[in-house]
């Protein structure tokens, strides 16, 4: 029981996918322009991660190791396409914002990485917890970056202005701003770990 709890917790801090494993950096840098986008991307990836983890751990016995990668990719792609279709139907504005990065969840290294490193070797429930923890860790970190960039780069939180006469530091809304904020967060995490 204790180990199951640990499987859940590790993804949030100790093995945080972005800050420690440094996986999934492409969507992290590209769609963290606002809290809304970051949360949308994080939750979509979490959904795919949990579903693919469960399915892969269920069928791991039947999938021969030599064709496992194509099988995993098809499974992951299926869930991504479901997310994409549902989002286009019910959240069209978020779908328009995230654009190409929704289909690109297929090649998000976190998902294939967890399938390879965890789900293909562990039970269904443990894989579910692993996916949930990793997903939360990913969503949480992405949202913090999104929040910082939205406040500094656009002067807004969740689309609402922070102040009527705030002059935004535009660089944070642009790609270099993503690298700056991520780099700073990595540095802070490293400094914290060394203590």
């Amino acid at each position: 029981m204790k180990s199951l709890v640990a499987e859940f917790y590790k993804g949030i801090f100790k093995e945080n996918p972005i800050l420690v494993l440094a996986l999934g950096l492409c969507p992290t840098l590209a769609v963290s322009t606002s809290l809304q986008n970051a949360l949308g991307m994080g939750l979509s990836a979490t959904f795919v991660l949990i579903c693919s983890n469960i399915l892969i751990s269920m069928f791991k016995r039947f999938i021969p190791s030599r064709v496992r990668i194509p099988s995993y990719i098809v499974i992951i792609a299926t869930f991504v396409t479901i997310v994409e279709l549902v989002m286009e139907a019910y959240l069209p504005s978020l779908y328009k914002q995230l654009g190409i990065f929704v289909p690109l969840i297929v090649v998000n290294c976190i998902i294939l990485g967890r399938a390879e490193a965890f789900a293909s070797k562990n039970g269904v429930f443990a894989s579910f917890l692993d996916g949930l923890g990793m997903g939360i860790g990913f969503t949480f970190t992405l949202s913090i970056i999104g929040l910082i960039r939205e406040v500094l780069g656009a002067g807004k939180i969740w689309g609402y202005p922070v102040s009527l006469d705030f002059v935004p530091v535009l660089v944070f809304a642009l790609p270099p701003g993503a690298l700056l904020v991520l780099g700073l967060m990595l540095a802070i995490k490293q400094a914290g770990d060394k203590r």
Binding site: F62, I63, P64, R66, V67, P70, S71, V74, I75
Partner: peptide
Amino acid sequence: LYFVLVLGLVC
């Protein structure tokens, strides 16, 4: 044959 079967089924 088994590979083809598994992949086919998944798809």
